[in-house]
Amino acid sequence: MCETCGCGDPEIVPIEVQERILSDNDAQAGHNRSHFKGLGVLAINLMGSPGAGKTAVLEATSKAAAGRLKLGAVSGDLATERDADRLNAAGIVSSTITTGSACHLDARLVHHALHHFPSGDRDIFFIENVGNLVCPAIYDLGQAANVVTLSVTEGEDKPLKYPVMFQKADLVLLTKVDLIPHLDFDVAAVEDALARVMPGAKMLKVSARTGEGIDVWLHWLEERRPAAVDRPPEAHHEHSHEHQHEHH
């Protein structure tokens, strides 16, 4: 008997599920995580508003890490390949995930990009998410850490307005700090806002323009790299899977 809508149908039954609606994405993200582990690569989900300086930070990171670390990146882009072109020009092996109208990357898109990625020997693999301060945070991609860029031109109250994004962040990069002298931006106010939405709030000030803070950021990354034990190199397309991958 349907107890809720009173339709009188004798065969209505409640089926208990109690599971995350995005459990499929979670499972796919877990699979991506095992790829990253097998490759011995540190995967970073880089998020932030459109134009916050995600690509610029990666360009500056590449410059600072030149000769020391092999960097890779995939960029979620609505329609163009501009970011991947910029990153390749900066020495980061990169490909584009064309998202069309989607406002975020999900684990399946990243998995597909990973299987088509031109290099399997990267030390750090950046996933430049679609510029958006809301939904990218909802989708686990299999990353080791979430990093959110917040530029000084966006205002100190952004963490309070978009708490979900900042709550899930392992690190916030305050970008374009070279502009602070020209703005009326209060660093202490953004630190206070962050402390109210992000447990163990951690923020680094960087400028892709001047290179300020990039060394500290690089150090943060290096500390998180998986220990370089003698792992058998995982050939990217040859590893065995129980399931099928559609390669389109």
């Binding site: 349907c2 809720t4 149908d9 065969e11 209505i12 039954v13 409640p14 089926i15 208990e16 599920v17 109690q18 599971e19 995350r20 609606i21 995005l22 909802i138 979900v164 709550q167 206070d192 402390a195 109210r196 939405v197 992000m198 447990p199 163990g200 709030a201």
Partner: peptide
């Protein structure tokens, strides 16, 4: 509030509030 324990100084943990869960389906079965 600041997400840090006043007593022991450790970062807080979310107890609830980020759920996106399918609990139950009522269907003719």
């Amino acid at each position: 509030a600041i997400l840090r324990c006043d007593d022991c100084g450790r970062p807080a943990r979310m107890v609830q509030g980020d759920e996106i869960i399918l609990e139950r389906i009522e269907m003719e079965a």
